[in-house]
Write a protein that binds this DNA or RNA. Structure first.
Lengths: 193, 193
DNA sequence: GTCTATACCTTGATAGAC
DNA sequence: GTCTATCAAGGTATAGAC
């Protein structure tokens, strides 16, 4: 296995992933990651040259997590309509995390757009959004809605980001589920003909 | 005038407001604010005991800005329906800022929910959301939709936050305006009977 | 490959002269 | 009221022993 297969490296990325999500990137220090993993600070630089490289690795890790999530959506049904419904249910499914910390890519994006550095990580983050958008487009295409597939897909992402943010700010479980239902109703409506 | 009327104090808050918006709270240092205002770092502590107090002052400043914005919405028409449409158009109206830095309260909230400190500022931030929500509720009430006023209001906030976040991530001006139009269509639909 | 020690800088915050 | 000098703590990053 290559350098990326190191057990320590993976433990660092996993801990950083959790901490970046629960505290934010800028509020997570090497000491925090060291405390969580038991790996001394100085040892990080054997695996990563800078803190941003850890960030990049975390974003890549989230990319594969979202790929797996999309695989689950595909496995849920052969019907693209059902797949989209499964997709739209993800925020509600991850209720407790969403209420506490928001969306793993939405909140991180909000944090990173504000900085002039981290261009690499930021590009990779946008790639995660692209992944989701393109997957949705495929589903809409398969439903014969190719003329509106792009707009519908961005709409869907915006709706989910919006209810996630409001549910997070208010820690409102009720709203999260009610609004998720509304999104699913909207999906059924636009995909029925 | 009270202590809050000091010219220097106001200059600090205004500079901090801009910087917190464009760089984020945690990424803005006293040195940054000092550079912008020309006021030496050490002098800040005459006006504010901690950095969080500056944050609180900034949030209070944004609260009054949003109050003014709502006043403009009310002045735009006597019809609550028109007022809501004016409100829904705000992200599109502030296009350039939204595309670059997102929503002034949405992004700040996302940043602050992740921290255990800043409870005071966080509470005041939620108060800004409450202000907007309650104003929307009033408009829906006036339209005879009191049974759905609360849900509609949260929906509206979520929609605007969602399109703002996606427009920000993608720096997509087209989407911002198209999706704003959709929200306004939705408003006309649910308020017509 | 792993760990310790440490350099160097910036941070928020303080003390005290003027 | 305003400013300079400085503090202690914590940040990222490096050097080098094992």
């Amino acid at each position: 296995m290559g350098t990326k297969g190191s057990a320590n490296r993976q433990r660092i990325v996993e801990a950083a992933d959790r901490l970046f999500y629960s505290r934010g990137y800028n509020q997570t220090s090497f000491s925090d990651i060291s405390d969580e993993t038991g790996i001394p600070r100085g040892n990080f630089y054997y695996y990563f040259k800078t803190k941003e490289e850890i960030l990049t690795a975390v974003v890549e890790s989230r990319l594969t997590i979202f790929k797996d999530m999309l695989s689950q959506c595909e496995a849920s049904s052969d019907d693209p309509r059902e797949r989209l419904l499964t997709f739209a249910n993800m925020p509600a499914l991850n209720e407790s995390q969403v209420l506490q910390y928001g969306c793993p890519i939405g909140t991180l994006s909000s944090e990173l757009v504000k900085e002039q550095d981290h261009e690499v990580s930021q590009a990779k983050l946008t790639a995660v959004f692209d992944l989701l958008r393109d997957w949705c487009i495929e589903q809409f295409n398969a439903l014969g809605l190719s003329h509106k597939a792009h707009d519908f897909s961005l709409d869907l992402l915006a709706k989910l980001q919006g209810i996630t943010l409001i549910a997070n700010v208010y820690h409102d479980r009720e709203f999260l589920h009610r609004a998720s239902g509304d999104v699913k109703n909207w999906l059924t409506q636009i995909t029925s003909n």
